[in-house]
Design a protein around this nucleic acid. Structure first.
Lengths: 148, 148
DNA sequence: TACATAATTAACGTTAACGTAAACGTCAAG
DNA sequence: CTTGACGTTTACGTTAACGTTAATTATGTA
């Protein structure tokens, strides 16, 4: 119930705690992803900022670009009541979700192939081809991924 | 049973069929990711190349860099019988798999949050805060992702 | 054989996401 | 009052993954 650090962080503290550099935090600020409080010249980060940051990092971890992350965060920040844009927001959200699911599929097949190869390695015997291992079920129509 | 194009492709054909540019294919070749046959000056791609390419593209889609992909492909191309390196190969493979699983976790939580937000959008009513929506269960220890 | 179509190499350009260095302010401790 | 330790802005540097000419060489077809 009692916040240890009173929920405030200097840039370095937050950076260390989240495994990034101060430069990175400033960069995210430049890109409009976070806007910490300003005590004079200095920055003060609160829990909200940390939460946003964790979002950003997770976004990066799943492959989003900073601008994409920015857009996604913006989705939630509509001026309030902008009903008109709600439909398009919903659209973009769903597109995102579909992309993520497609990505998850590929992650799963990659995991499967790698684990398969691990097993193969475990069972000592190998040929010398170097291509046979490629899982042939890989050959679905081979969708063209949209660029990042 | 009868391969339409006899399993051979010019650079442009393969490129189009896989949704990339010729430049990209040459680039991958420069990076040592594919080495198509050479008929004189020109390149000829076969099924094996296409399969490797699909691997590369899937790798990219899940967030690997070209050099990482190269390493992974190399894992399968050991000089044959290099038993000594097998353990380390196995290690790297498993590390990869763990990374992928961690990524998948993040993808799943992101999907959940986005879908949650979609639902919220569907139920017409919104507050104007712009931060409340962030799923608080996000606040696990906040692991520091290793860089790409 | 001429001309439109692709292919090749070489090399410079571009964007994203920071790294890194310079130059300077601030505050507590010795 | 000077030395760290940390903070700030400004700005140039770096790497990855191609894009984009440019200049040149086949290839295929009318």
């Amino acid at each position: 119930m009692t916040p240890k650090t009173s929920g405030k962080y200097t840039i370095k503290q937050l950076a260390e705690e989240c495994g990034v550099t101060a430069r990175t935090l400033r960069h995210y600020e430049d890109q409009g992803l976070i806007s910490p409080e300003r005590r004079g010249q200095h920055r003060i980060y609160h829990q909200q900022d940390k939460i946003r940051l964790s979002w950003i990092l997770r976004g990066k971890h799943v492959g989003f670009s900073l601008s994409e992350i920015g857009e996604m965060l913006d989705l939630y920040n509509l001026p309030d009541g902008r009903v008109q844009q709600r439909a398009t927001t919903l659209d973009r959200c769903r597109t995102r979700v579909n992309d993520l699911k497609s990505q998850r599929d590929d992650i799963n097949t990659t995991i499967n192939e790698l684990e398969g190869f691990c097993d193969l390695l475990g069972s000592l015997k190998r040929s010398s081809d170097g291509t046979h291992w490629i899982n042939q079920n890989t050959q679905k129509p081979l969708k063209a991924y949209s660029p990042r």
